[in-house]
Measured scan of single mutants.
Amino acid sequence: GAPPLPPYSAGGREVTMKKGDILTLLNSTNKDWWKVEVNDRQGFVPAAYVKKLDSGTGKELVLALYDYQEK
C-alpha cells in the first residue's frame, strides 16, 4: 500500500494524480510535499508518492507510484 501521508505543510493547493502518471516537477525544496504540474494544473503531491525520472530533456519529471486524491 501507499506510505503514510506526511502532515500537510506545503501551503498551496494539492493536485490529484493516478498511479503511472508522468508529472513535471516544479519544486522539490519541501522534503514532504513536491510541487508538480499535471494537465496544466499546478499543485502539491506527497514526495513519497512519486519517483524522479531521468528525462534527458532538462525538464524534471516524476512518476506517480500511487493514486493521490487532493483533499
Rank of each mutant, 00 (worst) to 15 (best):
G1P: 14
G1M: 09
G1R: 06
G1L: 08
A2K: 12
P3H: 05
P3R: 05
P3E: 05
P4F: 06
L5D: 06
L5H: 07
P6Y: 03
Y8G: 12
S9E: 09
S9N: 12
A10N: 07
A10M: 15
A10R: 06
A10Q: 08
G11R: 07
G11L: 07
G12N: 06
G12M: 12
G12Q: 07
R13F: 10
R13A: 15
E14M: 15
T16Q: 08
T16K: 06
M17I: 14
K18Y: 13
K19H: 05
G20L: 02
D21N: 06
D21H: 04
D21I: 04
D21Y: 05
D21C: 05
L23Y: 10
T24M: 10
T24I: 14
T24K: 11
T24Y: 10
T24A: 11
L25G: 00
L25S: 01
L25E: 00
L26R: 04
N27V: 07
N27Q: 11
S28A: 15
S28I: 06
T29P: 03
T29A: 12
N30S: 10
K31W: 07
K31Y: 07
W33N: 00
W33M: 02
W33C: 03
W33D: 00
W33P: 00
W34T: 02
W34K: 00
W34F: 06
K35G: 05
K35N: 06
V36C: 05
E37T: 07
E37H: 05
V38S: 13
V38N: 12
V38H: 15
N39E: 15
N39C: 10
D40K: 11
R41F: 10
R41H: 11
R41K: 10
Q42F: 07
G43M: 06
F44I: 05
F44H: 04
F44L: 05
F44Q: 02
V45M: 01
P46S: 01
P46G: 01
A47V: 04
A48C: 07
A48I: 10
A48N: 13
Y49W: 08
Y49E: 00
V50F: 04
V50L: 13
K51F: 07
K51S: 09
K51A: 10
K51P: 01
K52M: 11
K52C: 07
K52H: 08
L53Q: 04
D54V: 14
D54L: 11
D54P: 15
D54C: 10
D54H: 12
S55Y: 12
G56S: 14
G56Q: 12
G56W: 10
G56F: 11
T57L: 14
G58K: 09
G58W: 08
E60C: 11
E60A: 14
L61I: 09
V62D: 00
L63P: 00
Y66S: 04
Y66L: 04
D67Q: 03
Y68C: 02
Q69W: 11
Q69C: 09
E70K: 13
E70Y: 08
E70M: 09
E70P: 15
K71Y: 15
K71P: 11
